[in-house]
Structure formats: structure tokens, C-alpha cells
């Protein structure tokens, strides 16, 4: 169990930090507790990482929403993945987004999921995921231009 914890902690940390920001360690700890308390319910070991991702992202959004630190903004268009524009301080831009927008952006940019898969992780409809992503991209664009 200790080895599994060593294996999963960096992954969960990568998922939670862009969403929960300063509350990243709290979110990661809460997510890992949920993972370890429910391990018995995981029927297919090969699905471990997808299952952990779903728990971690939802937990990070929940923790971030609970925090009073969130400062959502409204913004225009995200650069294409891998573009040089993303070399700006990502954390600074993430600070201006809501947890839900950070989550969709992270799933797209860090995890490389398409909108349908990201919608599944977040338990929202594909339409909602698409609209959140679009607003997040807009937010990113506006942040650079401000």
C-alpha cells in the first residue's frame, strides 16, 4: 500500500495543483484518502489511473470551490496546445479562472483529453465541457492581453 501511495502521489499532485492552486496539497490529500478508502470498489486494475483521475479532479474542484481564494474572470481564446504563448506564467493565468475552468483546461492541456473524455471525468455534458473550455480559452487570451 505504501508503494502504491508513492506511485500515485505525484500523479494526483499534478492533477490537483492546477485546479486547487494554493490548496493543492489539501486537495491531493483528500483525493488520495478517497482513492485508498475506495480501492476495493475498483473492479478493473487496468483502469486504475482513469479512476484516480476522476476522483482527483472532482476533489480538487470541490476543495477549490470551498476556498474563498477563487477569483473567476471572464476572458477570449486559448492558444493551441504547445504554443509558445503558454510559456507565460501559467499559474498567474490560472489564478484568474474558476476551478471548473481550470479543471477543463488541465484535462485538455496536461492530460491531453478530448472534450468528450474531459466531460466524463467532470460528470458534465459534452456541451457544458465545450462551453467551459471555450470560456477558459477566452479567459487565457484576455489574461495575456491585459
Amino acid at each position: 500500500m505504501s508503494r502504491l501511495l508513492d506511485e500515485l502521489t505525484p500523479y494526483v499532485g499534478r492533477l490537483c495543483a492546477p485546479i486547487a492552486l494554493a490548496d493543492g496539497p489539501d486537495a491531493a490529500q483528500e483525493a488520495l484518502i478517497a482513492v485508498f478508502q475506495n480501492l476495493a470498489s475498483l473492479r478493473e486494475p487496468a483502469a486504475l489511473y482513469g479512476w484516480v483521475r476522476r476522483i482527483a479532479v472532482r476533489e480538487a474542484v470541490r476543495v477549490a470551490q470551498r476556498s474563498a481564494r477563487q477569483q473567476p474572470a471572464e476572458l477570449a481564446e486559448l492558444p493551441v496546445p504547445g504554443s509558445a504563448e503558454l510559456a507565460v506564467d501559467v499559474r498567474d493565468v490560472l489564478n484568474r479562472l474558476s476551478p471548473e475552468h481550470r479543471a477543463i483546461l488541465m484535462l485538455r492541456e496536461v492530460e491531453g483529453l478530448d472534450e468528450r473524455a474531459a466531460a466524463e471525468v467532470l460528470a458534465v455534458s459534452a456541451g457544458t465541457a465545450k462551453s467551459r473550455l471555450s470560456r477558459a480559452k477566452a479567459a487565457f487570451r484576455k489574461a495575456w492581453e491585459s
Binding site: M1, S2, L5, T9, R14, A17, L21, A28, L32
Partner: peptide, 19 residues
């Protein structure tokens, strides 16, 4: 690009809480 994104880690005490 992904290395620009924030990451977080748990210290040993937080990991023990999970365990």
C-alpha cells in the same frame, strides 16, 4: 509545455494520513 503547470506534492505526514 506541461512543465509550466503547477504541481504539488505531499509531505511525509500528509502521506501517512492517507495511509
Amino acid at each position: 509545455m506541461t512543465n509550466q503547470w503547477p504541481v504539488t506534492d505531499l509531505d511525509a505526514v500528509q502521506r501517512m494520513r492517507v495511509l
